[in-house]
């Protein structure tokens, strides 16, 4: 949409403030590689400014300043070449990610539009020769608005839809869309991978327990010979499997927490996920011990004597 729509929105009754924003996926050169990030263009001093700044400040000048996320590894005053210009890092945020988990960088709206629409001189010359007119740099992705107290955001969204013919969403609706369409889909995808990993883990645990049982088959035969009931033997194997599973769970949790910040996209590890995982580990450990138990129960106590 065109940037001037913000003036129309600002004039809607109950809207106290409206500002334009842009979002674009760009690659920025970090010390290691080109990193894919989402660049947010916002109007300085208006709504949409970066949250959770842990060092430095938000943008103060209309040009060539940038706020980056700590995940990208930049320091204050670092220089980042983007498009035709070089930007200076003036602020660093923590945990600022897009809906797809990519790190966010913030630049001024003007810079963002220029970055998106101002092509290189060669491209402009080539486009003109082909009869393509200059693309406008006043296009934005969204207008964000603040509602005055006493007004319902839902009613105002309806009003904008009805009279301005634009899609308008309240904060709650945005969260719902994001949760349902983006996060839920990703969760399902991750869930599928998790199921595959759990199956693979079960097979690995089964093989380990089976191999360990085979290695102790003589001892198991001795235990049966001296009169140990099957239930005690089953308990021992399940305990062994649970101990292995528990150690793997602890090691996995420590490892996951240690490396989560290194992931290119934001990874959230919640305590309830760990609790859920714990129960899955218990279940997988028990299932994984079944082959070993079968082998142990088949062990002949006569093996302990042998002729």
């Amino acid at each position: 949409m065109f940037e001037d729509v913000k003036y129309q929105i600002r004039n809607v009754e109950g809207v106290s403030e409206a500002a334009a924003m842009t979002f674009q996926t760009i690659q920025i050169p970090t010390s290691l590689k080109q990193e894919r990030v989402t660049a947010v263009g916002y109007e300085i001093g208006k709504i949409g400014k970066p949250q959770n700044i842990i060092s430095g400040r938000e943008l103060a000048r209309e040009h060539y300043e940038i706020v980056v996320d700590t995940k990208l590894g930049f320091k204050l005053d670092d220089k980042i070449p983007l498009g035709r210009n070089i930007y200076t890092v003036v602020g660093i945020t923590k945990g600022a990610v897009s809906s797809s988990g990519e790190a966010l960088v913030y630049i001024s709206l003007k810079d963002a539009q220029q970055l998106q629409f101002l092509a290189s001189n060669d491209t402009i010359r080539s486009d003109r020769a082909r009869g393509i007119k200059d693309t406008t740099s006043t296009i934005v992705n969204t207008i964000v608005a603040k509602v005055s107290s006493g007004y319902s955001p839902k009613d105002i969204a309806e009003n904008i839809k009805k009279w301005k013919h634009k899609s308008a969403y309240t904060n709650e609706k945005q969260v719902e869309i994001l949760t349902k369409n983006v996060i839920e889909k990703s969760s399902k995808q991750i869930g599928l991978f998790t199921i595959i990993l759990i199956i693979v883990s079960s097979v690995i645990i089964s093989l380990i327990i089976y191999t360990m049982t085979i290695g102790k088959i003589k001892e198991i035969a001795i235990l049966k010979l001296i009169g140990m009931p099957n239930i005690e033997i089953v308990k021992m194997i399940v305990q062994q499997s649970l101990v292995l599973g528990f150690l793997a769970f602890v090691a996995g949790n420590i490892f996951a927490n240690a490396i989560k910040s290194k992931f290119p996209k934001n990874v959230q590890l919640l305590p309830e996920d760990s609790v859920g995982l714990f129960f899955v580990v218990v279940l997988v450990s028990v299932i994984g011990s079944l082959f070993g138990i079968y082998k142990a129960l088949k062990a002949n106590p006569a093996q302990a004597i042998g002729e």
Binding site: K218, E219, I222, L223, K224, L225, I226, G227, M228, P229, A304, I305
Partner: peptide
């Protein structure tokens, strides 16, 4: 097995301890 547990004792050629 209960009988073995309660009334019998076994000693093997190899000590067969755990």
């Amino acid at each position: 097995r209960k009988l073995r547990r309660e009334k019998l004792g076994f000693i093997f050629q190899a000590h067969n301890l755990i």
